[in-house]
Design a protein around this nucleic acid. Sequence first.
DNA 1: TATTGTTATACTCTATAACTATA
DNA 2: TATAGTTATAGAGTATAACAATA
Lengths: 158, 158
Amino acid sequence: MAAQSQYEELARQLSAIGAVKRGLARALPAHCPSGSAAALTLIDQHGEMRMSRLAELLAVDMSVTSRHVAHAAERGWIERSPDPADKRSRILRLTAAGQDMLGVLSQRSIDTLAHTLDDWSDDEVGELNVMLARLRHSFDCKARALPPHHDLDTRTPV
Amino acid sequence: MAAQSQYEELARQLSAIGAVKRGLARALPAHCPSGSAAALTLIDQHGEMRMSRLAELLAVDMSVTSRHVAHAAERGWIERSPDPADKRSRILRLTAAGQDMLGVLSQRSIDTLAHTLDDWSDDEVGELNVMLARLRHSFDCKARALPPHHDLDTRTPV
DNA sequence: TATTGTTATACTCTATAACTATA
DNA sequence: TATAGTTATAGAGTATAACAATA
């Protein structure tokens, strides 16, 4: 267990990390918003999969996943073939154009981070990666069990 | 300098950290979106300031800052008084209601993180905080110098 | 003329709910 | 009846550009 002030600080850091994400997003090619980029990356990493699995990996609602995938499919980066085992499902695969786009995406991320983190050692970046992965995992496991706030207490301090 | 694969991994981790941010945002009281929450936190942390300074701390455009502050001011959390030294400017201060709201916000962040990170030590959370702060700092310093992509190369792989 | 702040507009990401097609 | 996926709608965050007031 950490001190309360560490949690408050972490909340602030997470709130501010959006600026870093926007910095990376600015390097994306036109017509490839970060949502589509994330979908391409995950399909490349995990291989072909169904919509529901991708939604799980993206940690967003399937309706959101559907939009990102539709965007990528319209541009020829993702192919959606019918699943022979279940006619409701569709199997997602990267096309050759999708792999090309992924190459551009990777290179731009690398360029941006190599420039901004030029004074970070390999170990330091690796350590940050490990901790971010663990942070995500902790949330995946335990956040579901959190009772939603009903805001009954919001009225008191006003 | 880190290996390219570490940069690619960091880009993936940052892309996925949105799920954690959404987890924290779900604990926010109604009518206090994360943008307003961030504004309240920064004014509390740094004391009274002008719009332009807050925009700098939030690392977003001043038009965005203006919206967040207007939202908070409408609810009585922030007071905007004219700056005697420059009639174009407004000085931002937390009201008593704003400090109350801030107390609620802090407590909810602490509750959420204490629950999800219950197996993290104080040192581990502290180390993550340090690295996230350094990440932000690296971007603040160097991202401005990055040449914007003109997407001339996007046409090639298609 | 330049700067501070606001507003109008547009785009992206997200969730909920309604809907279809299939299981 | 339940599940996989799509679409419509709505809310939040952001940026650019046009604008008003002041420096």
